[in-house]
């Protein structure tokens, strides 16, 4: 009897609930999609750098924090929004320059794991540097983005979530065009394939790295603004990177559309899991469920949904 009850709770009752309350189920889906876009924003930064340099940049979360801290810190010092935004972008370009000059330059053609370890070190450096300059207190970030909630046909939507989703969509479109239709984009892909071969055909590797780290910094700034507006700008923004990892595993480390689709699947998947199956095990399953979902995908497509299939001659 208990087994039947258990099977019912796991395999039947959640679906009955979804069908019985379609408006609420729709709200869960929409909420998951909007959250997924936010995850994608963070995942994009990883994809950009991996795509262009083959480096898994563990410091991307710290870059999100640093970008948002710099923006809000400058605004607190009296900078108007536009000046703070421009200044922050300049700071991020300077950071990219420093990373290339003092870290990447010495690691050309090193093993991937060496580059990865270097970015772990960079994470601590950026976090410590950012917090010492701008402090560790929670800083409100108000860029005038509307955040009122409203109902449409019983669905509760929030203006800010919609704005974030729109921003994410525009950003992805711009990046897709940049990578596929510009000279720099093609050069970035060449560098990703092989550092030495790219240099041999005249691609300036150092400049390319500065460009890609700058663009990743800019994407980090957008992500930092969106997440920072929700929770205030504070250290925990750097932990957002952990939410991007399952997105990357699922979407593929080299695909911009993959980061978006992966984000949406993770966003919706974790919300459905938490709400319909979470209560069976005491809740709080969405964090690890995202990884379970991603690992399940790995079994069938190790390169992720949109990742490039790796074929190596042995």
């Amino acid at each position: 009897m208990e087994i039947i009850n258990f099977l019912n709770l796991v395999f039947l009752a959640p679906f009955v609930e979804m069908v019985s309350y379609p408006i609420f189920f729709s709200e869960v889906i929409i909420s998951g999609l909007l959250t997924g876009v936010m995850y994608s924003l963070v995942a994009l930064g990883f994809v950009l750098i991996f795509k262009a340099s083959g480096v898994f940049n563990f410091a991307q979360g710290a870059m999100v924090l640093f970008a948002a801290l710099t923006l809000v810190g400058l605004m607190e010092h009296g900078f108007p929004i536009w000046a703070a935004l421009i200044s922050t972008i300049i700071v991020l370009i300077a950071l990219a320059f420093v990373v290339e000059r003092f870290m990447l330059r010495y690691l050309i053609n090193q093993e991937d794991i060496i580059l990865f370890m270097a970015t772990i070190g960079l994470t601590f450096l950026i976090q410590g540097f950012g917090e010492t300059i701008w402090g560790s207190n929670v800083k409100p970030l108000d860029l005038g983005i509307p955040s009122e909630s409203f109902e449409v046909g019983g669905l509760l939507l929030n203006e800010f979530d919609l704005f974030a989703a729109g921003s994410g969509a525009i950003l992805v479109a711009v990046l897709a065009v940049f990578f596929h239709y510009t000279r720099i984009g093609r050069a970035l892909r060449a560098v990703a394939d092989d550092h030495q071969a790219a240099m041999a055909v005249g691609i300036p590797l150092k400049n390319i790295w500065i460009i890609v780290w700058s663009v990743a910094g800019f994407v980090g700034l957008v992500a930092g603004i969106m997440w920072g507006a929700k929770s205030g700008v504070q250290f925990s923004l750097s932990l957002i990177a952990l939410k991007a990892l399952p997105v990357l595993i699922l979407g593929g480390f080299t695909s911009v559309p993959g980061a978006i689709v992966g984000g949406l699947i993770i966003g919706v998947g974790e919300k459905i899991a938490e709400i319909y199956w979470g209560p069976l095990v005491g809740g709080a399953i969405e964090n690890w469920f995202a990884y379970v979902l991603a690992l399940a995908f790995l079994l069938f497509r190790p390169q992720g949904l949109f990742g490039e299939r790796i074929i190596e001659r042995v």
């Binding site: 909420s31 998951g32 959250t35 929700k230 939410k243 919300k271 709080a284």
Partner: peptide, 21 residues
């Protein structure tokens, strides 16, 4: 009604959807 939020709690939409329901 017990609703757990995992560390650090940056994302809580599922929790508050359950509150709304």
């Amino acid at each position: 009604i017990l609703l757990a939020v995992d560390h650090p709690g940056q994302e809580q939409k599922a929790t508050w959807l359950q509150i709304r329901r």
